[in-house]
Simulated assay, not measured.
Amino acid sequence: MSLTITPLAPALGAHISGIDLAQPLGATQREAIEQALLNHQVLFFRDQPLTPTEQARFAAQFGDLHVHPIYPKVADVPQVLILDTAVTDVRDNAIWHTDVTFLPTPALGAVLTAKQVPAYGGDTLWASGIAAFEALSAPLRAMLEGLTATHDFTHSFPLERFGSTAEDLARWEATRRDYPPLSHPVVRTHPVSGRKALFVNEGFTTRINELQAYESEALLKLLFAHATRPEFSIRWRWQANDVAFWDNRVTQHYAVDDYRPQRRVMHRATILGDAPF
């Protein structure tokens, strides 16, 4: 098959056609998708009715898969988590965030499939940390490159929303024990392209370590607002069987929670990455 790559916005985003993601990738296809991901940071594929097994197999061609400690999983494919508004409180997705930055080695990327979508609403936005960093003034870029920030699992998964039953509480406490707060650089270098990107997000980043508390709060507020400006972002309107594949190392995203009481069901396979530097 011959891939067609159509850019969607200057900062990030491309639509990919001419491929069946249910089939194993050939070496040339895999390299083309990897290069497109480097170039465009988030890729969209229409009309891809993947089973969970097929979704996991596609994602695993780019790295080892993560099993999420909190969200429900597909019973026989635990590497695929379920985001179903009829089952789980997914309000933590309705905030700008980069997935699982509470891990020592946050995700390389993720593959999200649309199983059931509302008639309208429920869009997802992505923003480029590369574009946001490069748009900052040179003095601010230089200062940020010397800073680190704390990322905390409990910031997006508070006990009051994820510990309602004995089973949920045990799972939450185990996750908090296994993944205590940790530090990542405020500016991350992409391990392949070498480009630099802002690597703080409202979902998990709680403070900049080297600053006083009020300084950290003010700077994070500025960076959160700057990183998600419209010129650094793209908005995707889902259709059933759409697939999105994004580079989690240099992007953040926001699932708009504007469609209730309609139901939205998504499946996500998360690809493990490396330690940010």
Rank of each mutant, 00 (worst) to 15 (best):
T165I: 08
N209W: 08
A240G: 12
E210L: 12
D168R: 10
R235H: 08
F224C: 02
A227K: 05
P191E: 10
Q239E: 15
T206L: 02
A174Q: 05
I234N: 07
G203S: 01
H190V: 08
R188P: 10
S216G: 02
N201L: 09
D242I: 00
Y179K: 07
A166C: 14
F204I: 03
A197T: 09
Y214E: 15
L220V: 02
A225L: 14
R188H: 14
Q212R: 15
R176E: 12
R177F: 11
G194N: 01
R229W: 07
F232L: 05
H184V: 07
E202M: 14
Q212F: 13
S183F: 11
W236F: 03
L220T: 03
A166L: 15
Y214M: 14
F204V: 05
T165W: 13
P181C: 00
A240I: 15
K196A: 03
N201G: 12
A197R: 07
I234L: 10
S193C: 05
E202K: 15
E215M: 06
P185S: 01
K221Y: 13
Q212Y: 14
E215P: 04
L198D: 01
E231F: 13
F224R: 07
D178L: 09
T189D: 09
R237P: 09
N241D: 15
K196H: 09
A218D: 10
H226I: 09
F224W: 05
V186H: 08
A166R: 15
D242L: 03
V186P: 06
V192S: 06
N201W: 07
L198G: 02
W236L: 00
N241W: 12
A213I: 13
A218G: 12
R188M: 13
S233E: 01
